[in-house]
Design a binder for these strands. Structure first.
Length: 504
RNA sequence: GGGUACGUAGCUUAGUUGGCUAGAGCGCGAGGUUGUGGCCCUCGAGGUCGUGGGUUCAAGUCCCAUCGUACCCCCCA
């Protein structure tokens, strides 16, 4: 008794002290709570399905790798390796890093396990967290989630086109609208020549460039192309374009990719200003931009060819490859923004309510029995009042509640309450399973009841759609009327003025 | 790394030109008599106002610092 009192009366200073000891997540990292999991699960499931559809096998690589995997794979000069990588020396003196992306790891795995001895291309699929120590912003976290596809060991442009399509399919199936931006960087040779020309051009206009671009011109001339400054943006209109500098093979490759996309009726825009920063990219590169209103363009994902990477990482020469990565954080936030209906991960159909100690014990057993029989059952055995249990049942949105009390035990029966209408019926206890099976089947044939999902405001706004309806909406996420094929290059320039964060 | 804005209960927030025990809605918990949900009613738990200093008789309300968040630069797989 006195002890309880003592606990209750936490003094102010005690409380303050306790509060000060509360821990929280590290900057740029966050928890994903149970009520939000359905979005992530939907993305994962869709990615997995597309992977299956196209024969990509799941690859899980360690989150921790030797720092060199990324230094060599991603490039030492890149910002990501230079200053955004979580890297450290462990107790044993090894240089390790949390993976900032997965392509390098995939290539490492390809080489390490001699996957070149398998039928080519080796098609890999991954999902998981990546880590980048950058300043957090909206949709930009230090622990970010990506899924992606990598196909190693094949040079055909058909592969590029199919990968572009795969990413597109993922977004469509999730109901997230996007535009595809594609470009070709050419191979190393054409790119070097183009760079020279570009530098020559911009140098001749040197005075008109902004300060940032002046320094950028030396480090990464391609980046000048997507500068947002007005002066630079207008300069680029007359700038030489990479597509004019492609050699025969690269040009042919690009034309094929475009041809296949046309054949597939995939809407895309050839955008000469899409430039991916990494050195390892060659030829085809592409990005998916959220097709949004005012907000400007946000890259949801992207990828491209990296024909030289396997060699760079110590693998056999001439191992061409192509891949893409999608940013799950942004996809999920788009889905929530657009109030896209997502299936619940856990939706029990039956609730088991008990009254009295004897019934409680019996329900414990019944619960296990029904669970094993494949029913999805919920309960609240820690509650005693029927009222409280029915409230729980209501919140769990079950279709039926089974009620077992003294009376029923005496009669060898159990009560079935149909939640929607509140109709109750007493049935033979020994026939619970067959009866419930029958009722659930019958129930699913009826027009689904109106269920208001009250867990988020979004759901409330979305209206009182029943589950079947919402599933339809979900499937109908893709809208063909948005499909515009844009393929005239220079006129696009004005559309690209506002380049949102390209990172995903 | 630089800049701007913001920071009140789990969530959304009210809080006048600084002034009594910081209000509300949602959510959560208990109850509205005996075995019954979704509506309603009552009650309750939960904030000392991100944190630390400072100014003042007095600060959620002003100043500084710090942390966090958002946005803009920067950068970008």
């Amino acid at each position: 008794m006195p002890k309880i009192k003592k606990n209750k009366a936490e003094s102010k200073s005690e409380k303050k002290d306790r509060k000060s000891k509360e821990l929280s997540t590290v900057t740029g990292m966050r928890d994903i709570l149970p009520q939000d999991q359905k979005y992530w699960e939907a993305v994962r499931a869709t990615a997995q399905k597309v992977a299956n559809d196209y024969g990509y096998g799941r690859l899980d690589t360690p989150i921790l790798e030797q720092t060199d995997v990324f230094v060599r794979g991603v490039g030492k000069q890149t910002d990501i390796v230079e200053k955004e990588m979580f890297s450290f020396v462990d107790q044993g003196g090894d240089n390790l890093a949390l993976r900032p992306e997965a392509t390098a790891s995939a290539v490492r795995a390809y080489i390490q396990h001699g996957l070149l001895n398998q039928p080519q291309p080796v098609k890999l699929f991954y999902v998981g967290p990546m880590f980048r120590h950058e300043k957090p912003q909206a949709g930009r976290y230090r622990q970010l989630y990506q899924f992606g596809f990598e196909a190693i060991g094949e040079a055909s442009p058909a592969l590029d086109a199919q990968l572009i399509l795969m990413g597109w399919n993922c977004l469509n199936e999730l109901g997230v609208e996007a535009t595809i931006q594609i470009n070709s960087l050419g191979c190393h040779t054409c790119r070097e020549e183009y760079k020279k020309e570009l530098i020559k051009y911009f140098k001749s206009k040197g005075k008109l460039l902004c300060e940032g671009c002046k320094s950028r011109l030396a480090r990464n001339p391609l980046r000048v192309l997507d500068c947002k400054e007005e002066g630079c943006a207008s300069l680029r209109e007359d700038a030489p374009q990479i597509l004019d500098y492609l050699d025969e093979d690269c040009k042919k490759h690009f034309m094929k990719v475009v041809e296949y996309l046309d054949e597939l009726d995939v809407p895309y825009a050839v955008n000469p200003y899409v430039v991916r920063g990494l050195d390892y990219y060659s030829r085809t590169i592409f990005e998916y931009w959220s097709a949004d209103d005012a907000e400007g363009k946000v890259a949801l994902g992207g990828g491209g060819r990296y024909d030289d990477l396997v060699k760079i990482m110590g693998g056999r020469e001439n191992t061409p490859a192509c891949g893409l990565a999608m940013g799950m954080d942004r996809i999920v936030s788009k889905m929530r923004e657009k109030e896209i209906n997502v299936p619940e991960i856990y939706q029990p159909e039956i609730f088991l309510a008990q009254l009295g100690e004897v019934a409680k014990k019996k329900c414990f057993v019944l619960y296990e029995k029904m669970r094993r029989a494949g029913f999805s059952v919920a309960q609240a055995f820690y509650k005693d009042s029927l009222k409280a249990q029915l409230e729980s049942a209501n919140k769990a949105k079950v279709k039926f509640t089974l009620i077992l009390g003294q009376k029923e035990i005496g009669d060898g029966t159990i009560m079935v309450r149909e939640m929607e209408g509140g109709v109750q019926e007493v049935i033979d206890y020994n026939k619970v399973e067959s009866e419930m099976k029958k009722r659930l089947e019958k129930y699913s044939e009826l027009p689904a009841p109106i269920i208001i999902e009250a867990d988020t405001d979004a759901n409330i706004k979305a209206g009182k759609k029943n589950r079947k309806q919402s599933e339809l909406d979900f499937a109908a996420g893709e809208s063909d009327d948005e499909a515009r094929i844009i393929d005239d290059l220079p006129d696009l320039a004005e559309d690209f003025d506002h380049l949102g964060g390209d990172e995903f």
